[in-house]
Design a protein around this nucleic acid. Structure first.
Length: 720
DNA sequence: TCAGTATGGGTTTTT
DNA sequence: CCCATACTGA
């Protein structure tokens, strides 16, 4: 009954978790402790030892990458195709459920998924149609509001305005947006989850079917679940299911988009007698790096508690570099990369991590100048490119005429003489008759002038024709025909420079993608619909040039789950990391600290941290202080490179005189990084100074009141 | 209708 | 400073 090969090579805790009895389980898995291993071995264990049918197992992850990795590993372990197993992202699984049960959820069969870009457009359109001021009703904020409510499982009708007219308006916009989506058959990301939840909640027949089927539900990165995901899981598992959750509260870095670490605790409450396992042995980092990470994260409150250890060597200390400015910082990194490659290391062993994407620029320039290949992660992905979305919009409209967003996107692209005036007419008609743009367009032709009517008619005919012509073609020929017959390819060919060329190439790449596309058999839908959904759900991270050996650059967020022999954590300055906005609230600061922890634990052999005294940010020079996180790491784990002679430089550097007179101190001794006291705001740190004399504007980061800009002459500051 | 200029705003990201 | 969008003039 045992399967030694499944437990071989695992440590005691891992083995215990993998072979745990069939009861609710929680595995607290620290960074680099072999969490994916446990998850995949557990699935194999269920199948081979417990003789659970793969048909009865559901494994959920957050990213397609994680899902793919898991699928691959399980397949090779079981030695059979893993098709009967449901492995996927929350969104992917939800989508599959909705495809199978579109009737029960009141969706049209042709429903389409929209990405956040489409969602924002739709919301903006609604705000405009109500003639609201976009600066007062910021589309992004509205979107955020709607998504946050959906993540909590709330519909517009569930919300009360509480006498707040502001809130009332938001709720109204939510309602209108949802009506619009329902009319056009669009489902946004949050809606996928919410509908899937409502499906189980409201349809006992469906619920019991899936409860019977999926007795075993495994969840990765449990700390990242939001309310609706958790409720959905709980519903699905019910009283009889066997959940197996893996997570790490210290790596929860998505609170800002609705993730609830508390779900880890909630899980233990909802499933009394949860078997708890802790994986604390780290197989990734050296002792020094690990100790530094442990010390850092111990500053957070309310942790579930866990201390990583390693049996490996101490390794080298964390190296700290104080750069003069961001250029110097980049040069430092480039030189360290060079050291590594000269010793025979691969460039891809090095990762440059930063807090915000904008920081990548300086590094790119420096690497470019040094002729070191690199790769930046997390830019615009394939299916998010404008030209691709244009092509997809045609396909979507062909598939589903009531898709207004797609209609508006391509009705005049390439230009065919359908301008604002024509569209206004159509829009008004559509609104007045509560019908789709497509229908409205048909009805408006006669009342438009000869020429305008003709153009519009031409468009309608084009779409109809494309539908007729491509209906029975294989998917890739369908795509190929559409991009050519609509004139899209010709249109982008005109674009000047290699920009246009690249776009045409991308369109051709789309045809290739369509050719290689394998439909999801289980979802039971036409290949085109399947392809369109796939494009939105898996916008395509894998780039073509993956094979070139290049330095890896990415944000700290996107580094989660990865590991590199050499890691550079850059821009370690208060205000940047931790970010300015997070500093004012405690929860925010703790999340930043976890982010720092995640970054630190990515490093296997060497970890470099750097900060710049002076940094050009949004066009102006700012003077930062080292990140508070650096001070939270005990000095014995850190080695400063190029010991600093002077820690804080005087604020006042005469520019105009250009003389050799250096660094005069301001009266009152105001220096950057200096602690000062203000009568009203209390204590703070001088963050930046612009101008000079008593007219100088001085920016101070107050402990209680956050960042304030004051005029030096009036501020009455007292050095502390 | 389009190109060229003014304006504003600027964590983090997956799906 | 760099980008994305809105507005203006031919």
């Amino acid at each position: 009954m045992d399967a030694p090969h499944l437990l071989a090579g695992l440590n005691d805790e891992q083995r215990a978790a993998v072979s745990a009895p069939l009861a609710p389980t929680l595995v607290l898995a620290g960074a680099g402790s072999g969490k994916t291993r446990v998850l995949t071995h557990r699935v194999a264990w269920l199948v081979q030892v417990e003789h659970v049918s793969p048909h009865g197992i559901l494994a959920v992850t957050f990213t397609n990458k994680a899902a793919g990795e898991m699928r691959g590993r399980i397949e090779s372990m079981l030695g059979v195709p893993s098709a009967p197993l449901w492995i996927g992202t929350f969104h992917g699984i939800a989508h599959r459920l909705l495809r199978l049960h579109w009737r029960e959820t009141n969706l049209p069969q042709a429903f389409q998924i929209i990405d956040s870009d489409d969602q924002l457009r739709a919301i903006r359109k609604i705000i405009k149609s109500l003639e609201l001021d976009e600066s007062r009703w910021v589309p992004k904020e509205v979107m955020w509001f709607i998504n946050a409510r959906k993540d909590e499982g709330l519909r517009a009708k569930d919300l009360k305005d509480e006498g707040d007219p502001n809130r009332r308006q938001f709720i109204k916009l939510y309602e209108l947006y949802q009506e619009q989506c329902d009319r056009s058959g669009s489902v946004d990301f949050a809606e996928l989850l919410l509908r899937a939840y409502e499906l189980l909640r409201d349809r006992p027949d469906v619920l019991s079917h899936y409860r019977n089927r999926f007795r075993h539900v495994l969840v990765d990165e449990f700390q990242d679940t939001n309310t609706i995901q958790y409720d959905w899981l709980k519903l699905l598992v019910g009283p009889t299911g066997v959940p197996f959750a893996v997570g790490d509260d210290d790596q929860s870095i998505y609170r800002w988009r609705g993730a609830k670490v508390e779900n880890l605790q909630q899980y233990r409450r909802d499933f009394p007698g949860v078997q708890l396992f802790r994986l604390e042995q780290n197989y990734r980092s050296t002792g020094n790096i690990l100790e530094a990470a442990n010390a850092l994260i111990s500053n957070n409150t309310g942790r579930l508690g866990k201390n990583l250890w390693t049996s490996g060597e101490r390794g080298e200390p964390v190296r700290l570099y104080a750069a003069f400015n961001e250029r110097d910082e980049a040069d430092f990194v480039v030189n360290r990369v060079r050291d590594w490659t000269l010793k025979g290391g691969r460039r891809s062993d090095c990762a440059i991590l930063y807090r915000s994407n904008a920081q990548s620029r300086t590094f790119e320039e420096a690497l470019l100048a040094a002729r070191i290949p690199y790769r930046v992660y997390g830019g615009l992905r394939f299916f998010e490119r404008a030209e691709i979305k244009d092509a997809l919009a045609y396909l979507r409209l062909i598939f589903n005429r009531v898709d207004d967003a797609s209609f508006e996107r391509i009705v005049n692209l390439p230009a065919r003489g359908i301008g604002t005036k024509t569209l206004d007419t159509v829009r008004n008609y559509a609104r007045a008759n509560a019908c789709s743009m497509w229908q409205a367009a048909g009805a408006c032709i006669s009342e438009l002038g000869n020429r305008l009517g003709q153009s519009l008619h031409g468009f309608l005919v084009l779409i109809e024709q494309l539908d007729q012509q491509t209906r029975n073609l294989p998917l890739h020929e369908q795509v190929d025909h559409v991009i050519n017959a609509t004139g899209l390819v010709a249109y982008y060919k005109q674009d000047k420079g290699d920009r246009g060329e690249a776009k045409v190439e991308n369109l051709e790449e789309l045809v290739t993608a369509a050719r290689g596309f394998e439909p999801d058999e289980a979802a039971q839908m036409p290949a085109l619909a399947n392809f369109l959904s796939h494009a939105v759900l898996e916008s395509g991270e894998d780039q073509a040039d993956e094979w070139e050996d290049g330095v890896q650059m990415m944000t700290l967020h996107s580094a989660k789950g990865l590991e590199f022999p050499i890691v550079f954590m850059c821009g370690m300055e208060d205000g940047l990391f931790p970010s300015q906005r997070s500093i004012t609230d405690v929860g925010g600061l703790e999340e930043e600290r976890r982010l720092c922890y995640v970054g630190t634990t990515r490093a296997m052999k060497q970890l470099f941290m750097s900060y710049a005294e002076q940094r050009r940010l949004h066009g102006t020079d700012t003077y930062g202080t080292p990140s508070r996180f650096i001070k939270e790491i005990p000095p014995e784990f850190i080695e400063e490179i190029r010991p600093r002679i002077q820690v804080s430089r005087p604020v006042y550097v005469p520019r105009s005189s250009g003389s050799g007179r250096m660094e005069e101190e301001r009266p009152g001794g105001i220096r950057l990084g200096q602690r000062v006291r203000h009568q009203k705001f209390g204590e703070g740190v001088v963050f930046n100074v612009e101008g000079d004399g008593s007219n100088a504007h001085i920016q101070i980061n107050f402990e209680r009141h956050g960042m304030k800009t004051l005029v030096l002459g009036y501020a009455n500051l007292e050095p502390v």
